[in-house]
Each structure stands twice: as C-alpha cells, then as structure tokens.
C-alpha cells in the first residue's frame, strides 16, 4: 500500500520534472534554433529573462526523482543505473554543461563568449532530455531487469529512440508555449507570434512521433503498449491528447491565458498515463512495485518527508511562480551593482 503511494509520488515528481525541467529544456531548444547573433538576439533575450529566476527550481525536481528512486526502490535504482549507465552519464554531463552554460552566459558582456556559453547551453538542452527520454523508453520497453548488464541495446532500441525524440518534442512544445506567454508579459508582441508558431510546430512533431510510435512500440514495448491502449492508461492518453489539442486551439485563437496550464496538463497526463500503463511493474515485466519496494518503515518515513515537502515547498513554489509571472523578479543590472564597462565589451 505504502509502496504504491511512493510509486505514485515518484510518477508525480517525474511529471513535475517533465513540466518544470521540460519548459527549461524547451527554452534551450529554441535558443539553439534562434539563428545567428543578430537574428536570434530578441528570442535569446526573452529566453534569458524568462528562464533565469526559475531554472534552478525547475531542475531540483530531478534530484527529487533520484532520491525517491534510491530510498523507495533501491533495487530498481541499482538495476536502472547499471543497465543504462551510458545515457545516464551523458544526461549528467549534459546537466552540468547546460546549467553552467546558462549561468555563465548572463554575466558575459562579449558576443564571442556569449556565443560559446550559449552554444554549450543550447546543445546540452537538446541532448539531456533525449538521454533521459531514452532511459525512460528503455525501462518501458522491458529491457531493464535486475542484473541486466550495461549494453547499447537497452537504450538504442526503437522505443528508447522514439521516447528520446518525444522528450525533445514535448520540451520544445512546453518551452514555446511558455515563451509565447512570457513574450506577452514582457510586452514583446513580435515574439508572441514567433513562439506561437513554434509551439504549434512542436505539437505537430509530438503528434507525428506518437503516430510513428504506435505501430513501432506494439511489439517493442508490448506491456506498456497494451497498458496505454486500454483502461485507465488509455483514458489518460485521451485526456493528454485532449489538452494538447486544446492548447493548439487556444494558441490559434490567441487565448494565451490558459495555454500554459493546458500544455502542462498535456505532458503531465501523458506521464501519468505511462504510470498507469506500467502498473504494477517498476520494471516491466520483471519487478513489481511490491517486489522492488524498500523497507516498510523507511517508506512510511519517506511518505512523511514527501508530505512535509508538499506543505513547505508548495507555498514557496506558488510564491516564486506568482512573483515571476507578475514580473516582480528581475535580474540585477550593472547599474544596480555599480559595474563599469570594460574595453572589449560589445553587448
């Protein structure tokens, strides 16, 4: 019972990371595709400004995921990190490069330096969700079992590749939807349509990938495929699709007020659908939630810690997102800290 609860907490936190972190990765994706220094100047300005106050918060979800895995389901954690060693390593390196690139780009005042840091940030924003997605695909396809040695086929199979690409497309979708709203908030009307178009295109990519995935994963990820095409799994897939379509329709009629919520619902419900489809397995079809669960006493305490987290972190998160969306959070400028220009500055 407790093990199931913790498993659902894990799913919810993964969904939160997919949405919070995903929006961030998506912003990085559009940074990558924004074009040269001149053409991409305005989108990058918006991405910097919109992301800066919340990106660290968005990425703490990932640490939560890892901790829930090793405390709640230690054998599953060991199996996943053994079998999927390389993609997880690459995701970790990607996280470092991405965060460092983003944080170091902001205080740089030279185009050449900004370009290097920006490129590192943007490319890592593409690779990290891909590898995390492929890890998820590897698990969903049933290729990971306790004791599976690290090998390429665990993460370079059709399901993994599709899941990785879907992760990129989904993050691009979220990123574009949020940036479109942010553009309106910051009064950059030209960028509203710029990202509106990109959000629709990204959703198109999600749909195309999902359509390809349907026949391909039928045999490749049999258990989860069946879970997603019937019962509660199917219900949540339909709900996710509904919200996705709703997002596109709202974007079309420029009803920007609700698009962020519907896009988040799309991604979160898709993750929850995967959770339903994979029941009762942690690792289909070899390790169930009950088999993989840690000590009952530890799980009860973990549940308590999760509850405290909700009570404490929830209001704090609400506060930061509220302050951010109201435009109360702004970066310190050079005038605020009394900084002078230096020879060679060209920004």
């Amino acid at each position: 019972m407790m093990a199931d609860t913790i498993a659902w907490v894990l799913i919810v936190v993964i969904a939160a990371y997919a949405c919070g972190g995903g929006t961030d990765y998506g912003a990085g994706f559009w940074d990558l595709l924004a074009g040269g220094a001149d053409r991409g100047k305005r989108p990058r300005w918006l991405i910097d400004r919109a992301m800066a106050p919340v990106w660290e918060v968005n990425n703490v979800w990932l640490i939560f995921v890892l901790i829930l895995m090793w405390t709640g389901f230690p054998t599953m954690f060991q199996a996943v990190f053994t079998a999927l060693w390389l993609p997880l390593l690459l995701a970790a390196v990607g996280t470092v490069l991405r965060g460092a690139g983003f944080a170091l780009r902001k205080p740089s005042r030279r185009i050449a330096r900004r370009r290097i840091f920006g490129a590192v940030f943007a490319i890592a924003s593409l690779l990290t969700p891909y590898f995390l997605g492929s890890v998820l695909g590897g698990v969903a396809s049933g290729r990971v079992a306790v004791g599976t040695p690290a090998s390429a086929h665990v993460w370079s199979n059709p399901t993994s590749i599709l899941a990785g690409l879907l992760a990129i497309a989904a993050t691009a979708f979220l990123g574009a939807v949020f940036l479109s709203t942010d553009a309106r908030r910051f009064g950059a009307e030209d960028l509203v349509d710029y990202f509106r178009l990109r959000a629709v295109l990204a959703f198109g990519a999600v749909v195309v990938l999902a359509v390809i995935a349907l026949p391909v994963t039928h045999h490749d990820a049999r258990y989860v495929w069946h879970g997603l095409t019937r019962g509660l799994g199917l219900l949540f897939v339909v709900l996710a699709a509904f919200f996705g379509v709703a997002t596109v329709l709202l974007l079309m009629v420029r009803a920007h007020r609700w698009t962020r919520y519907t896009s988040v619902a799309t991604v979160a419900l898709a993750v929850v659908a995967w959770g339903f489809a994979q029941r009762p397995y942690l690792l289909p079809t070899t390790l169930t939630v009950a088999q993989g669960a840690g000590a009952p006493h530890a799980l009860r305490w973990l549940g308590l810690v999760a509850l405290i987290a909700v009570v404490l972190v929830g209001p704090a998160l609400a506060l930061v997102y509220r302050l951010d969306t109201k435009g109360r959070l702004q970066e310190l400028t050079d005038t605020d800290t009394h900084a002078a220009g230096l020879p060679g500055d060209n920004l």
């Binding site: 640490i63 939560f64 000590a295 973990l302 810690v305 987290a309």
Partner: peptide, 24 residues
C-alpha cells in the same frame, strides 16, 4: 544504493526539500 538505499536514503529526502526551499 541497491542494498542500503532505503536504510540511509531518508536524509537525502530531507536534503531534497530543504534544497528545494533554498532554490526557491
């Protein structure tokens, strides 16, 4: 982690939400 994760992992759980608050 496979053998002891559930025994000593809870400290990390506390760290996770504390760190979350700190980030916010």
């Amino acid at each position: 982690m496979g053998r002891w994760g559930d025994v000593f992992g809870l400290g990390f759980g506390v760290e996770a939400w504390a760190f979350f608050l700190e980030a916010v």
